[in-house]
Each structure stands twice: as C-alpha cells, then as structure tokens.
C-alpha cells in the first residue's frame, strides 16, 4: 500500500467516524453526548491533519450503518466498532510512511483503540484485526 493509498483510507475512515458520531451523539444522554462530542472533535482534527499532509482523492461518501442505531446501547456498539476499525487503518499508514506522519499515525491509532475500550469495547492484542466485530 502506498502512502497515498493508506492516507486516503485513513481519511475515508475518519469521514466515516465523523458521520457515525453524529448518529451516536443523538442517542446518548448528557455525559455520553459530551464524550461523543470530544471523540468527534478529535476525529475531525485528525482528518484535517491528514488532509493537510497531501493530496486526497475522495471516494463515494455513502455510508450504510452495520446495524440499526435506535438506542444508547447500539450507539455505543457503533462507537466501539468505528474506533476499532481505525486502528488498522492507522497502522497501515504508519507502515507506508515515516517521520512525522508516521508518528501522527501511531498516536492517532492509540487514541482510537483507547476510545473503543472506553466505550466498553474489549481489549485486543492487535486492535481491529482480531475482533469478530471488525471482520463483518
């Protein structure tokens, strides 16, 4: 995977997270909503950093939720899933780049993995790769 491919994939993933957190926040009560808001801000900031690092070829921006999200429990499940899925995307970016962008990628992956657990997700030896949730 080239650096640009990996960066495009990470940006597309961040766009998906931003979309998902709009739905997640709508189904949570005050404390969860604040947590979702902080996560949303973080994903927006990482997307902007990735966009600033080079060219971006946008893909199709139609998202389909993996399951219906109509209550707080489903909203948390979606948050766990989208955070887990970002970790391998950032690991691929770390693999295909070096220096500052690699440092940013590994930092972003750590933040996503920690948030997935903070939302109640399981810990994983290789986050996003060894979870049934990530393989659907």
């Amino acid at each position: 995977m080239s650096e640009q491919q990996a960066r495009n994939a990470a940006i597309a993933g961040e766009d998906a997270c931003i979309y998902a957190y709009g739905i997640i926040g709508a189904h949570l009560a005050a404390a969860g909503q604040r947590k979702a808001r902080r996560a949303l801000d973080s994903h927006r900031a990482w997307r902007d950093r990735l966009l600033a690092a080079g060219d971006y070829v946008p893909g199709s921006a139609a998202y389909e939720l993996p399951f219906p999200v109509q209550d707080a429990a489903a909203a948390r499940r979606l948050a766990i899933l989208v955070e887990q899925r970002m970790v391998p995307a950032y690991a691929d970016l770390a693999a295909s780049t070096s220096g500052d962008l690699r440092a940013q990628a590994v930092q972003a992956g750590c933040e996503c993995a920690a948030r997935s657990v903070a939302w109640g997700g399981p810990t994983q030896a290789f986050p996003g790769l060894d979870s049934p949730a990530a393989q659907d």
Binding site: P88, A91, C110
Partner: peptide, 13 residues
Amino acid sequence: ARILALIAASEAA
C-alpha cells in the same frame, strides 16, 4: 512499524 503501531494501540487501550 505496522506491528508496533498495533501493539502501541493495544497497550494504550
């Protein structure tokens, strides 16, 4: 680097 990024993420979590 890819494996270490995944391990770092696991440990951060």
